[in-house]
Structures are given as C-alpha cells and as structure tokens.
C-alpha cells in the first residue's frame, strides 16, 4: 500500500525562523511533500536608525540602543524571525519615508522581494540533493512581484493557479486569492471571479473527488473563517465590551467544496483558527499561524490508497 505524507502550513508572513523550520519539516516529520500556501510576506518594516556616533537605535519591541555589530546582528535576527523587515537607515531617510508613502512602499516591497529571494536560495541549496517536493505559493497578502522569484527557483515549486500532481494518485489545485477583505489586498478579488478561477482549475483535474483543494481563503461559515467584525476604520465592532465576530470566508470556495466534494480542503488566512471541519465528505483544515512567536503551526496529513488516512495538527 502506497503512503504519502504531506506537511501543510500557511501564513508565515516573512518569519525567517518559520521558513527555516518549514524546510526542516520534511525530515523532521518524515514528509514526502511540504506545502506552504501564502501569505509569505511580512507586514512591518522596523527601522534601525544610525546615530551620528555610529551606534544604532531601534524602537521595536521596545527602544534599544545598539552598541556593536553583534548586538546589531541579534536585533536583525529577532526582527526577521518575527516576520518583520529590519532596515538600516538614518534619521533623514526616516523623515523622508514618513513624508512619502510611495517611497515607503517601494522600500518595503524591495525588502519583501529580497526576503523571498533569500528563502528560495536557501531552499534550493537545501533541497538539491533531496527527493522532497516543496510547494511555495503566494496568498492574498502577497504582492504579484514575488511570483517570478518563486517560478524561477529550481527546487521550489510554485503551484499557484495550477493543477499539480502530488503523488501520482492525487492532484492539487492551488489559489492564493481571497474574497474581498477590509484591507483591499493585492490578491483580493470578487466571489464571482474566485469561483471562476476555481471552476477553471477543476475542469482540468482527473477526479474532482480525489484532489486537495489548496485555496488560501477558507470556506464561508465553516468555523475555519471566524474573525472579528471590523468597522470602516478597521477597529473591531464591540458589543458589551466584547468584539463581535463573523464568518469572513468565501462563499465561492464553499460552493466548490459542496459541489465537487474534494478529498480535502487546505486553508489558512485566519490565523486565530486551528481546526478541522467536515463539509459533506470533505475534511477542511486550517492550521492557524503563530509566526510572530517563531512557531510554525501546520498539519501532518497521511494518505494511502484508500484516501485520507489521518491528519494531525502540530506546532513546531
């Protein structure tokens, strides 16, 4: 009986330590295939400002004076492991960045692209003499500019918007797009367009019931998609001191799962959730994310000839 073990995770958001753990997961969990499905890029740039006396100062997570190169390296490692981008700069440039949003975005985009490049280089070096299949795809938070880097990597496969063969028995379709979010992100799209993209991929698969539906956004009202209900200023709506929550998943994804009943739904997007639900026969999972703490959350999924054998949430 053939067995396939997949390690699946999402939403590492720029965390260096989480990506390095992701690469290590194949050997650690004895997985044939490792999948990290968006969002790959981080959210914050942390300026490390050089003073006139050549020392540096950083104000994340608290203000700290950096006196030597060893301390500078430690701070940069801490910032990078938390998923943020350390940026050596000076007071003058900080003022320019504050005054010019386009320039700020350009710097952050550059840092995001550089980090993805570093990851692909690291993965290529690590995987070149291994049989592990490594899938790395963007999510709705990720800018389009990272796609060419993922596509050009030698031992990293970008399955975005493709049908990919997992183990000769099962296929996987992958989409990093999401239904609209309050932040209007690079890969936010309408439910209709999301539904069309899924349909286009489903039309290419051999057996819809035997695929992994690897779509970043979870199905609507599944319990995998519960998030705070935000007002127009992106603050949580409150009732009696508590934040209101609501399902924010995709109706198109849910409709596709109900229609095709794939073997499994692989989702992320909502970091707070770590859960599995069944929609009809389909087991849908969201492993959640704790990239900020340097913890890689995910799931080990075992398949055999009969289909899904087991899944197990892990946090390493």
């Amino acid at each position: 009986m053939s067995k396939t073990r997949v390690f699946f995770c999402t939403d590492i958001h720029g965390s260096n330590i989480c990506f390095r753990k992701f690469l290590g997961a194949a050997q650690f969990y004895n997985a044939n295939t490792i999948i990290c499905s968006g969002d790959l890029t981080g959210k914050l740039m942390v300026p490390i400002v050089q003073r006139t006396d050549r020392s540096y100062v950083v104000r994340w997570p608290i203000e700290k004076e950096i006196k030597n190169s060893k301390e500078l390296e430690e701070v940069e490692t801490l910032v990078s492991n938390s998923g943020y981008y350390p940026y050596r700069t000076n007071s003058e440039e900080v003022r320019e960045l504050m005054a010019d949003k386009d320039k700020e975005n350009a710097v952050i985009n550059h840092l995001m692209i550089e980090r993805v490049k570093q990851w692909c280089d690291l993965a290529d070096g690590f995987l070149k003499d291994k049989t592990t299949k490594c899938y790395l795809s963007p999510g709705n938070d990720d800018i389009q500019e990272i796609d060419p880097i993922l596509n050009e990597a030698h031992f990293v496969l970008n399955p975005e918007a493709k049908v990919t063969d997992i183990d000769g028995i099962r296929e996987m379709i992958t989409l990093g797009y999401s239904n609209p979010t309050p932040w209007d992100l690079p890969r936010d799209t309408t439910e209709e367009q999301l539904g069309n993209k899924i349909e286009a991929l489903m039309s290419q698969v051999k057996d819809p019931k035997n695929i992994l539906l690897n779509v970043h956004v979870p199905p609507y009202n599944s319990g995998l998609d519960t998030a705070p209900d935000l007002d127009e200023t992106l603050k949580p709506k409150m009732y009696d001191g508590n934040a209101l929550t609501k399902p924010v998943g995709s109706t198109a994804v849910r409709a596709a799962i109900e229609k095709y009943q794939p073997l499994m739904g692989l989702h992320g997007h909502i970091h707070e959730i770590k859960a599995a639900v069944k929609i009809g026969r389909t087991v849908c999972i969201n492993g959640g994310s704790e990239y900020g703490e340097g913890i890689l959350r995910g799931a080990i999924i075992d398949f055999d000839d009969r289909g899904l054998r087991s899944y197990q949430f892990v946090a390493g």
């Binding site: 969002d39 959210k43 914050l44 740039m45 942390v46 300026p47 400002v49 100062v57 104000r59 994340w60 203000e63 943020y84 007071s91 900080v94 003022r95 960045l97 504050m98 700020e104 975005n105 710097v107 952050i108 709705n140 938070d141 979010t181 932040w183 209007d184 992100l185 997007h269």
Partner: peptide, 13 residues
C-alpha cells in the same frame, strides 16, 4: 522622527 515612527506598516491583513 525615529521616536515618532518605531515601525512602518504596509497595507496588510
């Protein structure tokens, strides 16, 4: 300026 801006956040979820 640095004291006023400890981090720069991009548009992200």
């Amino acid at each position: 300026a640095q004291e006023e801006k400890p981090v720069f956040a991009r548009k992200a979820s």
